[in-house]
């Protein structure tokens, strides 16, 4: 199981729930599972979304493996100076 935290922009799909548990082993399967549970959420993701997996920010997530018990957060794209 993976703990997924959704920002306010995505919580309309989960009826306000911020933290959901998902059975997934990769970013790909995670998004597929989320979309199955909350139809439309995959399309609502910012095309340039970033992820934090266990505190490590991944600017361009795609095919990362996610180990069991991980904490995953969806982030909007980030900028730096």
């Amino acid at each position: 199981m993976v703990n997924v935290f959704l920002g306010s922009n995505l919580q309309r799909f989960t009826h306000g729930v911020e933290e959901v548990e998902v059975n997934a082993s990769s970013v790909k399967s995670l998004i597929a599972e989320l979309d199955r549970r909350y139809p439309g959420i995959a399309d609502a993701l910012d095309p340039k979304f970033a992820l934090a997996i266990n505190g490590e920010v991944i600017a361009n997530p795609g095919y990362e493996k996610i180990s069991d018990g991980s904490e995953v957060r969806f982030l909007a794209p980030m900028q730096g100076g």
């Binding site: 935290f5 920002g7 934090a52 266990n54 505190g55 490590e56 920010v57 904490e71 957060r73 982030l75």
Partner: peptide, 10 residues
């Protein structure tokens, strides 16, 4: 630390 959006700090 939720608010930083990073989650657990390394």
């Amino acid at each position: 630390n939720h608010s930083s959006m990073v989650g657990t700090f390394q």
